[in-house]
Design a protein around this nucleic acid. Structure first.
Lengths: 214, 214
DNA sequence: TAACTTAATGACTCTTAAGTCATTAAGTTA
DNA sequence: TAACTTAATGACTTAAGAGTCATTAAGTTA
């Protein structure tokens, strides 16, 4: 016997976030252009018409996905940095680990890949992301670096460039997981990857490294 | 007065590579799905019909872009590694610099971004890229690492994971240049970035680092 | 220079998916 | 429980772009 169609429920409050979550997962999987709004709606458990009640266009949905998804995490990381006491390297380590825990292990993990893939198609959104996520994230790492260089804990290196070298492996880990990781036979160990990155930094950045932890 | 239409020229030999080059630049800029074949043809100086003389479909064009673009470079890097004499760190440095010179500074620079963005839409091509580019590239770095660890030049770390941490900043640099770099006001210095990455590795990886060069 | 081969063209068809809107029905109010 | 408001639907319209093919003309051969 055929399943009876579930009765429509009216849930005005929950729809937007359910739709952006569905859109994020499909945008990350297929890319913006290759994602059909009917599939987004279907994954969110509504019809395409309902999607248009909450978002004016496909592009508006994309903007919402990026803007709502990631800002809270940046703010949280800034609070962590502000209240930190201890060595500069401890701060750096805490920032990287927190970023991983709050982005890498959550539903937001796909955003960097999506943003990288679509930046040139949505320069306005890319600009927003650059100013509110990239710049603020870089600034946090920069604070740790400058603190460590001022106290003599770190070697003196060009700060802006070193920030990028430190952040790159974290970003790349996220991007990898949503792209070519599907080709790997055995899944790579993200925890070990982070540990080794931090440990290479401990030895590479510090004048007198503390004991290796790997 | 209106420009006279240029007479058609018949250049059967040159068309395929001109078409894949045009396709690569547009795929990298807009993504596969958002790129129109008419634009690819136009950038290559031919009509859409001509494109279909040389490639059966849009997907076939994509495969050709990836497969033709990058294999020669991998082979060349393997030759360099095979004939290397000197310290393990020198080999590592040479590999990273050569990769940068032969990919990062050429028309192939956009391929990693493209592959990352489209891997899930073209699992077959992704598999090809993974086996013929990623794995072989990782193997080269792995050789340098294992040589250095065996001789006592490097600290002992998990090799597979360390390979990834070493490669990630190079890949990220390429990806960045074809995505969010457009938001930066001043262009970042790729040479300095590479130098600092290598220098952090020199200190972070070696038991007795040679003099810093930054 | 006439006949022939095939590279090149671009107008056309056809499919797909964004976006619309008249209709349905869930939940609320009197 | 009848009247009303608005969330939700899905068939429909429309635009865009992938892929086709009859036609044109560049270059070659006899």
């Amino acid at each position: 016997m055929p399943a009876v169609a579930a009765p429509r429920k009216r849930r005005k409050e929950a729809r937007p976030s359910e739709l952006t979550a569905a859109a994020l997962s499909l945008f990350v999987e297929k890319g913006f252009a290759a994602t059909r709004l009917e599939d987004v709606a279907s994954r969110a458990g509504v019809s395409k018409g309902t999607l248009y009640l909450y978002f004016d266009s496909k592009e508006a949905l994309f903007k919402a996905v990026i803007q709502e998804g990631i800002l809270p995490v940046v703010a949280e990381n800034e609070a962590i940095a502000a209240q930190h006491t201890g060595s500069a390297f401890d701060l750096l380590e805490k920032l990287l680990n927190n970023w991983w825990g709050k982005i890498g292990l959550t539903g937001f993990a796909g955003i960097p890949k999506l943003m990288v893939a679509e930046a040139r198609n949505f320069p306005e959104v890319a600009q927003f992301y650059y100013e509110n996520v990239i710049c603020r994230g870089r600034a946090l790492v920069g604070v740790a670096l400058e603190r460590g260089m001022a106290s003599g804990e770190f070697r003196r290196l060009d700060v802006e460039t070193t920030i990028d070298v430190i952040i790159a492996p974290i970003l790349m880990l996220l991007i990898w997981r949503f792209s070519l990781a599907c080709c790997q036979s055995q899944e790579s160990d993200a925890g070990l990857y982070l540990k080794i990155h931090v440990d290479l930094l401990r030895q590479g950045l510090c004048e007198r490294p503390t004991e290796s932890q790997v």
